[in-house]
Computed example of a mutant assay.
Amino acid sequence: MSEALTLARPYARAAFSVAKDGGRTQAWSNMLGFAAQASGVAGVQAVLGHPTASADTMVDLLMPPGDSDPNFRQFLVVLAENRRIDLLPEVAALFDQQRAESERVVKATVTSAQPMDEASLAKLGESLRKRFGQQVEITTAVDAALIGGAVIDTGDVVIDGSLRTKLARLGAALAN
């Protein structure tokens, strides 16, 4: 996995540079997401992995319908010619990470024991915005095993306020 990230990083940087220069970072993010998903489909993987598959054939399978960005097409051609199409999921993830940093947006995943209402999410979002000094994009998940509370994961920072963790710490303290 780390080798794939290492190989994907220069491609993601190049893609981000081209997209940013063209003012199309959102469009490129969408196109990379589409191509990454398409590359994971079993039938498409068979064609992409075939040693005689041409770069144009591979690119035609991965181009999003309706968008004919010549720079994106050329980017896919470079990946195909270098036999790096399999890095598309990592390239897309690294691209989105660079885009979020560029737009000064922190992506946070909030996992709670029960679904959170809109008012609680808005209050939490405001608190996170103050803490990080950036806009915060929140995605939610539910994990009943947390018992109560929530875990906030921003990638670099994890804030674990779950009842499960508090009980585990209490148990550890009592055992000592």
Rank of each mutant, 00 (worst) to 15 (best):
E3Y: 09
T6F: 07
L7P: 00
P10A: 06
P10S: 08
Y11C: 05
Y11H: 06
Y11T: 07
F16W: 12
S17L: 14
V18W: 10
A19W: 06
K20E: 15
K20G: 08
T25E: 15
Q26L: 03
A27L: 11
A27V: 13
S29F: 00
N30G: 08
M31V: 00
M31D: 15
Q37E: 15
S39I: 02
G40C: 05
V44R: 06
Q45G: 09
Q45W: 11
A46C: 10
L48I: 03
H50F: 13
H50E: 13
P51D: 08
T52N: 11
A53M: 11
S54E: 14
M58D: 11
L62W: 07
M63A: 08
P65K: 04
P65C: 03
N71K: 08
N71V: 02
N71C: 04
Q74A: 14
V77P: 00
N82M: 10
R83T: 09
L94I: 12
A100Q: 12
E101Q: 15
E101F: 04
V106L: 03
S112E: 06
Q114I: 11
P115W: 04
P115Q: 04
M116Q: 11
D117V: 05
S120I: 10
L121V: 12
L121N: 06
G125W: 01
K130T: 06
G133D: 05
I138C: 11
A144K: 13
A144I: 11
I147N: 07
G148D: 08
G148L: 01
G149W: 05
G149N: 07
A150G: 09
V151Q: 09
D153I: 05
T154D: 00
G155L: 10
V157A: 00
G161D: 13
G161P: 13
S162Y: 06
A168Q: 15
A172Y: 11
A172L: 11
